[in-house]
Amino acid sequence: MTEDVLAPLSGNVWKITVEVGETIEEDDEVLIIEALKMETPIYAPCDGKVKEIHVKEGDTVEEDQPLLSIE
């Protein structure tokens, strides 16, 4: 089962704090989006392993755009 983490707000990807293959727990920080000159950390919605990261640092993301997939 794969769950996509969607961007809760639009902005720039400031930093990605996980790597593909990494095992993470719910509420772990996965990446940071910068919007309105503020860094907003995004947290994992569930436990699992990072399957794929769809964005890279510096990318502009729209609301609801998939950021990464957790399985």
């Binding site: 809760p8 707000l9 509420d27 919007a35 309105l36 503020m38 950390p41 995004i42 919605p45």
Partner: peptide, 11 residues
């Protein structure tokens, strides 16, 4: 709740 993203709503 750290998974509550209010920024855009607050704008």
């Amino acid at each position: 709740d750290k998974k509550n993203y209010l920024l855009m709503f607050a704008m």
